[in-house]
């Protein structure tokens, strides 16, 4: 289960952290790794994801901000697990049966991952389907974490809220 998903990296693809914008990456088709949080579907650029792990028991770090779930050990490496629900202002998750840890590549930020309710499919979107805009507020009932959100992606059957993982760690400092 350790490597449920290993991303493949196209040689010429640019990820969001290189361009600051999904659309500016110049990729005709962008793949997203999607996951569920409080019944909303979110997506991150698949090029930013290192692997997805079954969530392990995290060791709490007292005195750390509430967004920090704790330290987890992934094959001898100590990672910092963040709680994306807390970061986006959702209530705590009651059902932990399908939770996963989405681990990001070192280029995104030093050894960290986020805990999500459950993972979704990998979806593909063209530039036309992506809209980079503020989606905070009424529409999705997301009360905070504005700077984490890039925009949305409209697929035929569903809507994906796009996140920028390279902002996740710096979000901890804002308090």
């Amino acid at each position: 289960m350790a490597n449920a998903l290993q991303t493949t990296e196209g040689k010429k693809s640019l990820s969001i952290r290189q361009t600051g914008s999904l659309l500016a990456s110049g990729r005709p088709v962008i793949q997203f790794c999607t996951f569920w949080l409080a019944n909303r579907l979110f997506g991150v650029d698949i090029l930013d994801v290192r692997e997805i792990n079954q969530e392990q028991k995290a060791t709490p770090v007292f005195h750390a901000p509430p967004e920090v779930r704790g330290y987890v050990n992934i094959r001898g490496q100590v990672l910092l697990a963040l709680d994306l629900r807390v970061m986006l202002g959702f209530p705590p998750n009651q059902d932990a049966t399908n939770t996963r840890l989405v681990v990001f590549k070192p280029e995104v930020g030093e050894s960290f991952g986020v805990v999500v309710d459950r993972v979704g499919d990998i979806v593909e979107a063209t530039a036309e389907q992506i809209e980079e805009r503020e989606v905070l507020g009424e529409e999705f009932q997301i009360s905070q974490g504005k700077e984490l959100i890039l925009g949305e992606c409209k697929l035929t059957d569903k809507l994906v809220i796009l996140l920028n993982p390279s902002k996740f760690l710096s979000y901890l400092d804002k308090e």
């Binding site: 060791t59 770090v61 007292f62 005195h63 750390a64 920090v68 330290y71 100590v78 910092l80 030093e110 050894s111 960290f112 760690l169 901890l172 400092d173």
Partner: peptide, 13 residues
């Protein structure tokens, strides 16, 4: 972890 460097009580994991 660098994000937790400011916590005085820990020196590592």
């Amino acid at each position: 972890h660098p994000a937790l460097k400011h916590l005085p009580c820990y020196s590592g994991a």
